[in-house]
Nucleic acid binder design. Sequence first.
DNA 1: CAGAGATATCTGCTTATGCGGATGATACCT
DNA 2: AGGTATCATCCGCATAAGCAGATATCTCTG
Lengths: 145, 145
Amino acid sequence: MSQRPSAVRGVRDHGRDGRTTRADPRLGVDALVPPVPADQAGRELLARFYRALGDPTRLALLAFCAEGERTGTECVAHAGLSQGRVSAHLSCLVDCGLLEVRRVGRFAYYQVTDPRVCELVALGTSVVADHAASIAACTRVAPDR
Amino acid sequence: MSQRPSAVRGVRDHGRDGRTTRADPRLGVDALVPPVPADQAGRELLARFYRALGDPTRLALLAFCAEGERTGTECVAHAGLSQGRVSAHLSCLVDCGLLEVRRVGRFAYYQVTDPRVCELVALGTSVVADHAASIAACTRVAPDR
DNA sequence: CAGAGATATCTGCTTATGCGGATGATACCT
DNA sequence: AGGTATCATCCGCATAAGCAGATATCTCTG
């Protein structure tokens, strides 16, 4: 079946079969393991949350609504898409906890209020800045057709 | 065209037309605006990055490779999917800066090394914990067909 | 109450993305 | 060299998810 990679081949030895582990002192204790849910359902939820951030239109709306409260109509004008589509995007962002909505009469005021959302975006932006070229080249999982 | 929402209607007045803004003292200065790129191309990159996190299989692989270096074959066994698919997932994660790969002979050792990745996952998990029900209900943007 | 504006939802279409399985390219072992 | 294991890429297929446009609701104004 699957072979064990044969140990240490001239590369610096740092573990039983030449591999680093979290116990490896080179990595330090603060390089924590990400708290990804162990159950499939939890991972599906987390994945769905990240997918909500995985659309350029929603990111633009998020930035727009971070500057202050915005009505749906203002968001439509800003996004330049159909009213129905923008409404759906906004609902999605609210459902995922990325945006809050305050309803007054026939108006809906959207705004980013959770500071974690800003941190999340800041971290993402930071990583992207370091890998822009390869991310641009990554045609995701499916080949570029 | 679009009406201006008429100002202040009994609700607490906190702005020109009853809306909060980032200048609103209630929000404080540390409630920063998320640094979403102003250009469409930059947002597309950032969105693509988040989409890489938006798949339960990739999240599972990320967690698996955070515990220490893992070979491709080990990842295949852990994910329980076809070898080709897992390989593509891993390449995607590497391209997006979420995973690093070290190649030795015919083996590829994958591992999470960037602490920002862990922070990113921790933040996401935290927000998801507060909105689990509505995220589960959010059939994304497309209606549930 | 009738008309207009603001939102949300539904329909049908198109593209993106996940999947298995085949194929190909290397590296390792005997 | 020949056989096998590891990993990457390609193919065709099925579903997810984005989009515009049409309605459907509800609210406000006159």
